[in-house]
Design a protein around this nucleic acid. Structure first.
Lengths: 219, 219
DNA sequence: GCAGAACCGTACCGTACGGTACGCAAAAGG
DNA sequence: CCTTTTGCGTACCGTACGGTACGGTTCTGC
C-alpha cells in the first residue's frame, strides 16, 4: 500500500545497498546463489545484521521485492489531448516498455524466485510481487485506455477485460518462455506494433489499416 | 520426438509408479518436498535404485517431465468439413482445454520446478518442458487454424503469429498469475468464448457479431 | 571524549540434503 | 537346487545451509 506515502523510508541506505547486492547475487546465480552467508560476504555485512534487519530469509526476499518495486516509477503523462495517432503511439510505447520490463534480468529473477516459492501456503511472495511489481504498469495502461475511451477512440464494456486483451496480445506466452530460459524477442518494437494494431482493430472506433496486422494478402 | 514411436517404453511400469509418486510429492509440497530420501520412502524403493534408474536428481526431474508428457495425448479430429460454426466450436474447445491444462496441478508444479531451475546454465529442463509439454497442444492448434485457412474461414500471413495471437487472447497473464499462486478463473468457458470471438474478429473472413466481444454498447 | 549502540567478521550448531556403500531377501533362470 | 540378478532398507559421508552467539571495532549522541 505504498500509494499515498511519499515518505516511508522502508529501508536505510545501507540496507538498500545490501538489497542491491542481494538482487545481484540472485540475478547471477539464481535462488541457490542467494545464501545468507554469501550475501553477508558480498555486501560486507554480518549475518547477524541481516537477521536483525529483515527477520528471516523470507523477510529478506520480501524486502528485495519491495526494494526493486520502489525503484520503478511510471510517470503519468496525461494532460495532452488524445488523437488516434497519439493513442496508438502511447499504446505502442506502453507495449515496448512492458516487454522491456518483463525481459529484464531482475524482473525475471524475482519472478522465478516467487514462482519457486509459490507452492508453500504462506508464501505471500507471489501476491507481493504481483501487487508491487504490477500495479504501476497496470495503472498506467488502465489510465491510458480509459483516456482513450473518454476521447471516443476506444470502445469496451469492461476496462479490465480490455486491458487483459491488450496484455495478452502484447505478451502472449513470451513471459513464461523467458521464465523457462528462452531468449526474448529480437524486435520488441515489431511485436508492440502488431499487438497494438490488433488491439485497435478489436476496440478502436476508427478503421485500422490491415497492413501491420498481417492479414492482408495471405500467401 | 515421441511422434512416430508407439513403442519406446521409456520406463518400466515400476519406474512409472515411482515417477507417479514423485509427481505427487512435487504437487503436494513443491520442489523442497521432492527429496531422494522422501521419494524412496513414499515409493517403497531404495535410493540406490533411484540413482541406478535416473542417474541423478536432474535425470529424475527430466524423467518426471517425460513421464507426464507421455500421459497426454491429443486426438486429431480432422476429417470433417469445416464450417464457420464448427471452426468456432473447435477453437473454443481448444481454448477451454488449454486453460484446463495450464491450470492443472501437475502442469503448474512442473512449470514451477523448471522455472526454478531455469537460472542454471545447463538446465535443459525448461527446454524439455516446452518441447514435450507444448508440442502436442501447439500442433493441435496449428492444424486447426491451418484447416480454417484452407477452408477460407481464416486469413493470416504467418500461422505462427496467428497462433501466438490466439494463445495470448486465451491465456493473457493468467498462466504467470497461477504460477505465482493466484487461483485460476471461475469460468473458463466464458474466457474461451471471448478469446475466440476476438480471434475471429482479427483473423476470420466472416462478419462477427460483436455481442461476445464486449464492445457493443459502451456504458 | 566517553558511554552505548550498531555492526562487522568469524566461529559455531543442528539439520537435512545428495549421493554411496553394504547386507540381505526375493525373484529369475538354468 | 543353486546361482545370479534385482532391488529394498538402512546406515553412512561430506557438504552446505539457516540461524545464533560472541569478541572486537566503528559510529553516534550527549
Amino acid at each position: 500500500m505504498r500509494a499515498d506515502a511519499p515518505d516511508m523510508p522502508e529501508f536505510s541506505p545501507r540496507q538498500n545497498a545490501v538489497l542491491e547486492q542481494a538482487l545481484r547475487l540472485l540475478v547471477e546465480g539464481g535462488e541457490k546463489a542467494l545464501t545468507t552467508s554469501g550475501l553477508a560476504r558480498a555486501a560486507n555485512c554480518s549475518k547477524e545484521s541481516l537477521y536483525k534487519w529483515f527477520g528471516d530469509r523470507e523477510g529478506l526476499l520480501a524486502a528485495m521485492i519491495a526494494h526493486q518495486a520502489s525503484k520503478v516509477r511510471t510517470f503519468e503523462r496525461s494532460g495532452e489531448r488524445l488523437t488516434a495517432d497519439l493513442l496508438r503511439d502511447h499504446l505502442e510505447l506502453f507495449a515496448r516498455d512492458l516487454l522491456v520490463v518483463l525481459a529484464g534480468d531482475v524482473s525475471l529473477a524475482l519472478n522465478r524466485l516467487a514462482i519457486g516459492q509459490a507452492t508453500r501456503e504462506g508464501s505471500k511472495l507471489g501476491k507481493l510481487l504481483l501487487e508491487h511489481g504490477r500495479r504501476q504498469i497496470d495503472r498506467r495502461a488502465m489510465a491510458l485506455i480509459d483516456q482513450g475511451k473518454r476521447a471516443g477512440l476506444l470502445r469496451f464494456d469492461n476496462a479490465d477485460a480490455a486491458y487483459h486483451t491488450l496484455y495478452g496480445l502484447i505478451v502472449s506466452d513470451l513471459h513464461v518462455r523467458m521464465l523457462l530460459g528462452e531468449p526474448g524477442l529480437k524486435d520488441n518494437a515489431r511485436q508492440a506494433e502488431r499487438a497494438v494494431a490488433a488491439f485497435l482493430t478489436l476496440h478502436g472506433t476508427q478503421k485500422q489499416s490491415a497492413d501491420t496486422l498481417g492479414v492482408s494478402a495471405g500467401r
